[in-house]
């Protein structure tokens, strides 16, 4: 339960980090909070020749409101976002989801961008990003590109990030006027990985539901003008299409049932908060 040997790099700014990444390539990993990467390295499920530590880069630790979006820098911890006074007003979904992310003692170091870069299919933050149609800002020594969540998230622990790129920020859309939001999950203990997590947005006649923990990545479905009597059928179809599998936490059938029940509850809760 110890990581394999690696070289530790602590760049003085983001440009040094990008240069090091361009030089070392796939054998290097970015270390921010380390709350996903280090367990994987302790288990030797992940290996690196070099870790590039960006956790001390103060210019990357920010939460900024810009043109209808909340941008969060790569060194911002989950605890810092949770403590941001405007969080509930700006993004009610994140405000509801963040307390489920890990524990008090891991949110203190785990970063928002790191969780999204890690892309665990059961993680809450990638699910929120997908449901809200957020964006990921990727930077390399050659330039910057911005990918929508749906293009960034490609599968289980897999993203469209290229080996020379750093996730420097993520952008969540600000709450939509009149929309209602809800987040719910089922886990064995509070803070454990979700067996199934759901994020709902209800806005006028449009209902969006994101589901995590079932498919290999967060999956979102949108219905428009769905009569209330047809919601159960729609959820049932969605549950089957997600193609969950049995594992030692839960069976596929149990996961489908969670999509149907938690999904309905979250949609009803979001509808209550909408106007």
């Amino acid at each position: 339960m110890k990581p394999k040997p690696f070289t530790y790099l602590r760049p003085a700014d983001i440009n040094e980090a990008l240069q090091a990444l361009a030089r070392i390539g796939e054998d290097a990993r970015i270390l921010a909070g380390g709350q996903s990467l280090l367990p994987m390295m302790n288990f030797r499920l992940a290996q690196a020749r070099a870790l590039i530590d960006i956790s001390r880069l103060a210019p990357l630790a920010y939460i900024r409101k810009t043109a209808g979006e909340i941008e969060i820098g790569a060194a911002t911890t989950q605890a810092q976002l949770l403590a941001w006074p405007q969080l509930g007003d700006a993004t009610p979904l994140l405000s509801a989801a963040l307390p489920h992310v890990g524990h008090f003692q891991t949110r203190s170091r785990g970063t928002v961008c790191g969780s999204i870069a890690h892309s665990d299919p059961a993680s809450e933050l990638p699910l929120c990003l997908a449901t809200l149609e957020g964006k990921v800002v990727l930077r390399s020594s050659k330039g910057e590109r911005v990918l929508p969540a749906a293009e960034f998230q490609t599968g289980m622990l897999a993203t469209a990030r290229r080996p020379d790129e750093v996730v420097v920020a993520v952008r969540f859309p600000e709450r939509k006027q009149g929309a209602g939001y809800a987040f719910m999950e089922m886990a064995q203990r509070h803070g454990d990985f979700a067996i199934c997590a759901v994020a709902a947005v209800v806005s006028g006649k449009t209902t969006r539901l994101g589901v995590g923990g079932v498919a290999d990545k967060p999956t979102v479905r949108e219905w428009s003008g769905l009569p209330n009597g047809e919601l159960d059928d729609a959820l049932n179809d969605f549950a089957w299409e997600l193609g969950g599998t049995d594992d030692h936490h839960a069976t596929a059938a149990y996961r489908r049932e969670l999509v149907r029940r938690l999904g309905r509850r979250a949609i009803e809760e979001a509808a209550k908060c909408s106007s």
Partner: peptide, 9 residues
């Protein structure tokens, strides 16, 4: 700030 010493180098 509380932190896991096993997840810190």
């Amino acid at each position: 700030i509380p932190a896991r010493s096993c997840l810190t180098l």
